[in-house]
Structure formats: structure tokens, C-alpha cells
Design a protein around this nucleic acid. Structure first.
Lengths: 210, 210
DNA sequence: CTAAATTGCCTAAAGGTGTTAGGCAAATTT
DNA sequence: AAATTTGCCTAACACCTTTAGGCAATTTAG
């Protein structure tokens, strides 16, 4: 019966498209089979299982994102570079919500190590070359930027900022201004501050509001 | 046959515990039934369906989180308040990973409006009273803090910062220092800056802005 | 250019989750 | 104690996942 020409790559690509259409966690082996007009069991020759499929979509998304980041960063520095990378994340999430969600998928350590994840950290570090941050601080800054990018995009995508007053584009621009200012004027380690006081007591969360 | 005494509340609570043990998206009506040693169909008298169960767990988590936040904020201001609320989120995520994940669950607008989500935004706004920010900026700052808290906690929970050099506690403290500094010295709206330049250029397709 | 080996998709089947419909017995009300 | 309500159960269907084994189309070899 006429072979359709399934391939791991074709499946992963179709899976990524499916994710963008219906959401990453609605990606199902069955639906994929339906799209290729093939019986479900047939996919299992190309993909180990559902988890494997999702992992591959995740790796694809991380790779695409890293490629876009690298392209955007080329020839830019300082605030320009910061805004460029930030926009890559935001735009990618808007264009490919399913893939972006996939990029958040938890990978096992081994797979994660072999993924494009490292390139992302590298890119953020590259941006910081435009600011005068020495080592311990640089890592803190990398983490801060990572947290911010990820958090902002998640909230905006999730509708967290939906119906509030100032539109998100304005917020976005002002936030980048703020981050740039922060990096240019990174506070010295106030080791003996009262900062740690509250630490032991409580925890954090994602907040929806405006 | 001996009634077990199921209740919507008991189910939601057990669901929250289950989430903390196995992860929010592994919370299943079947597993819950198993835990109460009851047949699956029996749960449907107390909960509309799986989605309804998850929604209720989400609402519970948002409420708990808001309560903790309110308690932590009482009597504090400025950086103290900032650190206190941030720690509430972080600690909650550590103690109750499943519930924290639930708090991220996308609610339909109507339900979201009736949730404790608003309290969270209010708390962040309350913190900003300790800093001199006037209106458009205040909202931007609320969103920035929300993005940051959510992003940081997600990444740390997801193992994003796992095996890197400076331990996360140090990063956490320094980040709070940085945010405090940023809020105390919020940059004025540099409307005519080069900020927007990069936005339009960002290689990736259609510019994002509204 | 066949014949053999491989590979791709299929049928079959079993196990898990979600959900609805209808029934009997336990708890509650009268 | 009778009547009513309510709680949990059985039955059944739909859908997703995964494994095992088979036949035919394709590729490789002689």
C-alpha cells in the first residue's frame, strides 16, 4: 500500500507545526498519524514514543531559536544587541507558540547537554560583553536576563498582561531601557545588606496581573 | 457500600498534593480515584471534569500564594518588601512545585477575573509604593517584576541554573539587589532613543508590535 | 534483471484516561 | 418508619499509547 515516505524529520517538523496550531501538549502521535493519513502504529518505526517525539520537537525549537539569535546578534553590541536578542525570543513565541512552549519542555540532563541550550547561554553572555561586568556578576546577570526574557514572554503569551492599560509594546520598550540601564549601572555586592533577612521565610510565583 | 465522604474540597486538596508529588500535568482523575479507593466515575459528581479539577487546583494555589504574599508584606516596605514577596514565590515553588505549576495554568478570562490573580498584581503594586514611580512607569515596573519572579522561579525549578558555578542563592540575593537598585533609579522615558531601532530589524519576520 | 534482503506501513490487541448514563443503597429528611 | 435525596457503582464508549507480528514495496546483490 503506497508508502507515504515517513521520516523522523518529517514527523518532527509536522509535530512542530501541529504544536503551533493546537498547543504543544496537544501534540499527539495519533493526530500526527491522521495528518499523514497513516495508521498510528506506523509512526513507531520513526519515533520511539510520544516522549521521544516531543523531545525532538523541543530540540528543533531550541536550535531554531539559537539560529535566529545568532543571526540577530551578528554585528550588534550593547543595548542594540540586548534588544535584538530579546525580540528574537518574543517574536519567535508569537510566530511559533507551540514551538516556544516546546523549548520549555524539561529534557533529561544528557539530552539537555547535547541541545542548543548552551548556545543560548553563550548568546546572553555575548551581550554582556558590551557591559562592564566581571565574573561572578556576569553569571548573575545572565541568569537575570534569562529569567526576565522567559518570564516576560510566558506571561505575555499566557495573556497575563492582556487587558491592562498601557499596551505591551510600550512596556516592552521601557523594560529594555530599564534592563540596559541596570546593566550599565550594576550595583556592587552589598554583602552586608539586609537583603538576606527575608530569604529564609518565603517563596515566589508567577503573577498574572498587569 | 461504605461511603468514603468525597467532597469537591477534599478532591481539590488531594489533587494539589498529587500535583506536588507527581507534577501538575500528571494529575489525573483516575489517579485521584485510586487514592480515595473509589471508582473513577464517582468523582464526576464532585467535579465537572478533568479541566474543572485542574482549574480548582489552580485557584487554590493562587489563593494560597496570595495569602502568603499578604502575610509576608505586612509591615514591610521598600527593598524589604520586595525581597519578602520574591521569597514567597520562590519558597512556595520549592515547597509545592505542583501547586506552583498549577498557578501557571491558563484560566479562561472569566475564571481568571474571579481568581486571586488580582491580589498578586495588587501586592506588586504595593511594593512599588516604596519607590517613586508614577503611573505609566508603575505598570511597566509591575510587569517587569512579575516577569522576573515568574521567569526566575520557572528556570530554577526546571533546573535551568543547575550545575553552573555561583550557587543560585547568591544569584538570588544579587538579583534582588539589582532590582532594588533599578527601581530606585528607574530610567526616564527616553522616547527618542535608539531602542525601537532593533525592534523593527529583528530578522524574524513580521515585527511584533501591536 | 531477477532473487534476496530490507524496510515501511498495516492489522490486531491490550492497557490507560476521560466522560456519560442509569441503578441501587446509604444517609437525610419528614 | 417512609419518602427523598445523595453517593458511589456498573456498564459502555471514545480516544491515546505502545507492542507484536505480517505482507508488500523498495533496495541491494548476484
Amino acid at each position: 500500500m503506497a508508502r507515504v515516505g515517513l521520516t523522523t524529520e518529517r514527523l518532527v517538523l509536522a509535530g512542530a507545526e501541529l504544536a503551533d496550531e493546537v498547543g504543544f501538549d496537544q501534540v499527539t502521535v495519533s493526530e500526527l498519524a491522521r495528518r499523514f493519513d497513516v495508521k498510528v502504529a506506523s509512526l513507531y518505526s520513526h519515533v520511539k514514543n510520544s516522549q521521544d517525539l516531543k523531545t525532538r520537537i523541543t530540540l528543533l525549537a531550541l536550535e531554531e531559536l539559537a539560529d535566529r539569535g545568532a543571526a540577530a546578534l551578528a554585528g550588534r553590541a550593547g543595548k542594540d544587541a540586548l534588544a535584538a536578542l530579546a525580540n528574537v525570543y518574543r517574536d519567535y513565541a508569537r510566530e511559533h507558540p507551540g514551538r516556544y512552549a516546546a523549548a520549555q519542555f524539561r529534557l533529561d540532563p544528557a539530552t539537555a547537554a547535547a541541545s542548543a541550550g548552551g548556545r543560548h547561554a553563550q548568546m546572553t553572555r555575548a551581550i554582556l560583553r558590551g557591559y562592564a561586568l566581571t565574573e561572578p556578576d556576569q553569571t548573575h546577570a545572565v541568569r537575570l536576563l534569562g529569567s526576565f526574557f522567559h518570564g516576560y514572554v510566558s506571561l505575555e503569551m499566557g495573556g497575563g498582561f492582556s487587558h491592562s492599560a498601557p499596551d505591551t509594546q510600550e512596556t516592552w520598550v521601557r523594560m529594555l531601557d530599564a534592563l540596559d540601564a541596570l546593566l550599565r549601572n550594576w550595583p556592587a555586592s552589598a554583602a552586608a545588606t539586609t537583603a538576606t533577612a527575608a530569604t529564609a521565610a518565603t517563596a515566589t510565583g508567577p503573577v498574572s496581573g498587569p
